[in-house]
Every structure is written in structure tokens, then in C-alpha cells.
Design a protein around this nucleic acid. Structure first.
Lengths: 118, 118
DNA sequence: GCCGTCCTCAACCAGGTGGTTGACAAGAGA
DNA sequence: TCTCTTGTCAACCACCTGGTTGAGGACGGC
């Protein structure tokens, strides 16, 4: 689970972290501000932020003893590109379903593996 | 981790499962066909498919003792909507950065929580 | 009916995850 | 300097995850 895309999907698989991301679209915030609404220790939120940071979804600055958290948009783009690519293909497949049906009798081999997935 | 979106992100956080999804865009496949390229037991692949199925990314039919696996597009749409929503907001925030800078001196409250995240 | 094929279920295991508490580092302010 | 605020680090814990092996269910073909 070391690749960028796995880290990004994994980071957003947690509802607390998605909530944090959602709130950060309103503007940067400190760890304390982000932790306040949750019934959870500051340390736990700090861990969540570390996960988001390692996934590249967030960066952390420094302002005295405060660590302002900042949302980064690039990795989101990476994720949407991956999803839309296969979503689009799946939809295309249904649109030309007649062609697929015609192909069915000739289909006795496994699907090819020529596509990279990362 | 019971909600739909968490399950979907979590399912795609694994490279093997993303690879399976990618291959399924070429057409339905049986468990055996899907397992063939991996250095992994059939049972392990069967588990991966179960995860994908519970996330709603895939459905499984029945054809005698075979269980053809079929890609579903709807949940992808749910994910892209979530991502793009916050990605768009993050980008908008940079575009009107001058406004944000003007707001900075008045910003001493935590970001609001009016947004649902699921 | 019996065998082979395709697949799932159950038990197990190592390692990861999400939370806790306690200690402490870095700075601002008195 | 002493203290308060802000946040991280480390150790610990219960539970989940991704793999294994072994057993067996469901079905087609002989």
C-alpha cells in the first residue's frame, strides 16, 4: 500500500478524514480547530492529519507553535482521472451492448492485462 | 466504516482490487479468470471480489458453478461527485485568493460544519 | 452415482489501523 | 524565568485486513 493512489483512496476511506477535508475547503485551520468538533483526543486528530499529509492531500505550515493545515488539490485530480477512466469505459461498454452481445460467442479468452492501473 | 462512500474508497485503496476493476471494464469474467494472473490463492481473490461486491462496485451472477463478475458504474459516480465537489471548492478558493487574503484578518473562528460529508 | 471443476466458508496468522494515555518539545507572554 | 498553549511522539490496546490452508458445497459430464 505504498503507491500514491492507494494512499489517497485509503486516506479518504475514513469518514472523519473526509469530514476534515470538507472543512478545509472553507479555509486553512489549526489542529486544535479541526479537532474541536470531534469526541476524540487531539492526538487522534493529529494522526488523521498525518495520514492525509502522507497521502499528499494536505500540507502543514508553521506559525509559531501552531501548525496550519492546508488542502492540496492535485491528488484529487489523480483520483478523479483514475475513476473517470474506468467509469467511462464501463459506461461505453453498456452503450455498445449490441456489439458486446455479438462478441459473446467468440469470447473464450480471459480479459487482457495490457492496462496499467496505477 | 459502514457507509457506502467509505466502503467504496476502502475497496479501491488496494492495488489488486483496482487492477481487477480495470480488467472488468473489458468485460465480465469468472473468479478463476480474474485470479489467474496473480501469485495468490483463488480464495484470496474471492475475498477481494467480496469486498468489491459489498462496496457496490461489482455484482456477481450465476452460471452453473461459475460466478461471473460484473462491473457496476453507479458507485463510481458517487465517488467522483464527492471528490469533484471539494476539489472544485479548493480550486475556487485559490482563484479568489485576493478575497481570502482580505478575509484573513477577520478570520478567528473555526470553519463551519454545515456540510455533510457522506 | 461418481468424479472433476469452480468457488466459498472457516480457522488461523502477521501486520496495519484507529483510538487511548502520558510525556515532552516549541513558542508566546507574564 | 516560569507558565500556558499548541501540537507531536511513544507505548499500548482492540479490532480489521490480506494473505494462507483445509474442508466442502454446487453443478456438469461421464
Amino acid at each position: 500500500m505504498t503507491d500514491r493512489l492507494s494512499q489517497a483512496f485509503s486516506a479518504l476511506a475514513d469518514p472523519t478524514r473526509r469530514d476534515i477535508v470538507a472543512r478545509l475547503t472553507a479555509g486553512d485551520a489549526t489542529v486544535g480547530e479541526l479537532a474541536e468538533p470531534y469526541d476524540m483526543s487531539l492526538q487522534a486528530v493529529s494522526k488523521h492529519l498525518k495520514v492525509l499529509e502522507e497521502a499528499g492531500l494536505v500540507t502543514r505550515g508553521r506559525d509559531a507553535q501552531r501548525r496550519p493545515v492546508h488542502l492540496e488539490a492535485e491528488v484529487f485530480d489523480l483520483m478523479t482521472r483514475w475513476i473517470e477512466r474506468y467509469q467511462r469505459r464501463a459506461e461505453e461498454r453498456y452503450q455498445r451492448l449490441d456489439t458486446v452481445l455479438a462478441d459473446l460467442q467468440g469470447r473464450d479468452t480471459a480479459p487482457d492485462l495490457t492496462e496499467d492501473t496505477a
